[in-house]
Design a protein around this nucleic acid. Structure first.
Lengths: 124, 124
DNA sequence: GTACGTTAGTTGCACGTGCATTGAATGCGC
DNA sequence: GCGCATTCAATGCACGTGCAACTAACGTAC
């Protein structure tokens, strides 16, 4: 792969990401009072069938966010009453996170927006 | 395009961007004391054949950065002596930015790193 | 049991970013 | 000439992020 082609690919990747993440951020914020990271976390939590929730670590593997950023994102969600943190009994270092009813509702409301923005922006 | 396919595409895009931007950021910072945005600006400036430099506005069109972020990025580059700002005589609201010799050198040194990281990361 | 290295998650801090505002310069209508 | 909307760039401010340091809990060796 010649250098210039790779650089062009990077610029295209960069452009797409910037456009889409920006569109998602503002649409979710405006219509549902959710940041992109917040929605992403909520999306994974609701998507996980296990009712006990996910551990921070598992979330971290799925979402590209530093450990500290994830910790604060979950803290914001908890403050808004959308998720609950629960100490893991088997390994008391761990923390289970699971959505509340309000969290599930907010997610259900925001999901169509999320999907729509992705579809229209990627299909441009 | 079904929703789930689009969401998967977005997640893949997101993953690639996170991996590559993170790798670029740390490699450029560590080896050349340049942030990713700084390099990007320098890269455009050196790439522009026009010796008088580019206007802030033109830079803004090429780089996906808010106007304020761009302003500060150029300010950082100027503080490090890598670019110079010059008032535009025809339209005194405008500002021309052009690389200094030091800027050209730093860019020449950083460019191989930039290309290498992109090639290895995109080819994974 | 005690000590030690490792792992999970949180917090202090500095930094880059976006939004909104500001200030200066331009162009247009009159 | 005089206003007035618009454009370009810089700045105040709040916020999310990453890094490094920290605390707590676990596992192992002895």
């Amino acid at each position: 792969m010649p250098d210039e082609v790779a650089v062009q690919a990077w610029r295209e990747l960069s452009r797409q990401y910037a456009t889409l993440s920006c569109a998602l951020e503002s649409a979710l914020q405006e219509q549902h009072q959710l940041g992109m990271s917040e929605f992403e976390v909520l999306d994974r939590l609701v998507g996980a069938q296990d009712c006990t929730g996910l551990r921070m670590q598992e979330l971290g593997e799925q979402i590209h966010l530093s450990q500290s950023a994830l910790s604060r994102t979950v803290a914001r969600l908890e403050k808004d009453g959308l998720v609950e943190r629960q100490l893991c009994t088997s390994d008391r270092r761990g923390v289970f996170v699971h959505p509340t009813d309000a969290g599930r509702e907010r997610h259900a409301a925001a999901r169509p927006t999320h999907r729509a923005v992705i579809n229209t922006t990627l299909g441009e």
